[in-house]
Design a binder for these strands. Structure first.
Lengths: 248, 248
DNA sequence: CGTCTAATTGAAGCATCTCAACATGCGTGG
DNA sequence: CCACGCATGTTGAGATGCTTCAATTAGACG
């Protein structure tokens, strides 16, 4: 347990994230900062929870990147969401006991595991926190819908530009990105698995976006050279992220 | 308001749906059956709520079919979910005030509009109902994820077979389908818009599925001739629907 | 420095799209 | 009850965005 007057960095991350999507009272924030966390370090490319499991904890990402994914019988992978510090990607396990997908790390991750019981207790006492957590899962769903629109109806160029916009806005909201600059630890294979594209095609499209002067930077460091242009290229409108205030 | 001892057919539909995903006590069911409903009839192909609006009610489908969708700037449409009697497709508006997508009818629909205030009141008093509703929105999200996997990584044949399996299992669960037979009021254009395919291709694939003796029946009446075969063709596993008991 | 992962490039193939015509069926009004 | 009209389904042919395979280069790290 942590001291509510001086929340641990992990709790601060969680509170900061929740504040991007909901308006919490001081009492609610304090209640959140009392959540028990069992902190653990995880290697890159390892599963946090696997499809079929029935977890007894939720996982708060404290540092690093994770993703939710499914693997099909032919070995193809579909990544369904990316998650960074402050996210609780398996919050749904509170009400959907058995995992219908896997949660894995993309980088080394430090995570805080919160017993389901503690969250249930919290929701029993704090309706405002319940609403915020429910809202968080609803925003997840909104992002799934937007990705669905992308893979269903958008071109590869639009999809990639859109994803870059989304990740940037989300990271900026929780203070993980500087202005028009972010550390994006995604390989082109991972981008392809998220967007329903081959890594070869992702590569070529990224080159196009760089050639069009929309983005620059190789590898993890990504610079957005033309923010309006990138949004336009990706047909991006941040409404679906339902943030309380948007990054410029 | 309705008599809790004799819930209206509309309330019965809702309760029946909730019972497919959660275990409700008699008291909880009674509380649900006291929800005020403003019943209205809607024409086919009309919007119930449109993207950008800030609804003050949630919409319970009592009869007919509806879908959630987005329209892109080039006029392309992506359908993100189908809904039948018992569903509350815009339940998320309770915590995400502005609609990031539209909800429209596919057939003539009779719908019951429930004031947000009444649902909020209900959730304040009945934690079990809150959990059931939250769970419902989480299952929605699980279905979005599965569709995402479909459009991202599955072939047209798999996608169509998968969708038929999903709709059948959901309709069977709430008593809207007979064994291996259902009334599916979807045009091939609508199927295409849901699956990220052209209607031309949907047509050809449906012919293949009929030729392979997996399904039969023209137009709305759809018969599943080979249920194991169809599930196999669609790589279908109902786990993600998180139903309390599955249809055979 | 060698090793391993990730990024890049080229070439050939194909699943699906687009366009455009035609068929079918069904509701409606004459 | 028939004839028209419109939505839906069906078919063919040509175009294409993306994939696959396979090889090469670049970059990071001990």
């Amino acid at each position: 347990l942590s001291n509510p007057l001086h929340p641990s960095p992990a709790h601060q991350r969680l509170i900061r994230k929740l504040e991007t999507i909901a308006d919490l009272t001081a009492g609610e924030k304090q209640a959140v900062s009392l959540l028990p966390l069992e902190i653990r370090s995880l290697a890159a490319d390892s599963d946090i929870v696997s499809e079929g499991e029935v977890p007894s904890h939720c996982c708060l990402i404290i540092e690093g990147f994770a993703c939710r994914y499914k693997v099909l019988n032919e070995g193809q992978r579909q990544i369904m969401s990316f998650h960074c510090a402050g996210d609780i990607p398996d919050l749904q396990s509170l009400h959907l006991p058995t995992m219908d997908h896997s949660l894995g790390t993309l980088t080394p991750v430090t995570a805080g595991f919160i017993p389901h019981g503690a969250i249930r207790e919290l929701t029993r006492r704090e309706p405002g926190v319940t609403a915020a957590l429910w809202r968080d899962t609803l925003i997840d769903a909104a992002v799934f819908r937007e990705w669905l629109v992308g893979v269903g109806r958008r071109s590869a160029h639009e999809r990639i530009a859109h994803l870059l916009c989304e990740v940037y806005v989300k990271m900026r909201a929780v203070g993980l990105a500087e202005e028009h600059r972010m550390d994006l630890p995604l390989t082109q294979v991972e981008l392809g698995d998220a967007l329903g594209l081959s890594s070869v095609h992702v590569n070529r499209v990224l080159q196009d976006l760089r050639a069009a002067n929309l983005i620059s930077g190789r590898g993890r460091q990504t610079v957005i050279e033309d923010w309006p242009g990138l949004q336009h290229a990706g047909d991006f409108d941040a409404t679906y992220l339902h943030l309380r205030k948007l990054a410029a």
